[in-house]
């Protein structure tokens, strides 16, 4: 992964989510659970692939379901890298 700060990573993730949800990046609440953002599993799996292609971080479908938030996801990705 390119060296990104946590706020930079959060904003990149917001952008990726927004493009798959048809929202403005600013409308994607990084504190909301990913489940509540409303994305089916097929779309989420493709988003995970795209995040890896765009940002070089390995994100999987199971990271994008459940009660995890974008902020939480960014923190765990930075811990792993």
């Amino acid at each position: 992964m390119k060296t990104l700060t946590e706020p930079e990573l959060i904003s990149q993730l917001q952008e990726a989510f927004a493009s798959f949800l048809g929202m403005d990046p600013a409308e994607v609440d990084p504190e909301q659970s990913i489940d509540e953002l409303g994305m089916d599993s097929l779309t989420a799996a493709q988003l995970a692939v795209e995040i890896e292609e765009r940002l070089g971080v390995s994100v999987f479908l199971n990271d994008l379901t459940g009660r995890e938030t974008i902020t939480g996801l960014a923190a765990s990705l930075l811990r792993e890298s």
Binding site: F20, G22, D40
Partner: peptide
């Protein structure tokens, strides 16, 4: 189901 999911995503995002 695969088609429905993709149509929904295309409709939502216009991507």
């Amino acid at each position: 189901s695969l088609i429905g999911s993709q149509l929904g995503q295309m409709r939502r995002t216009g991507r």
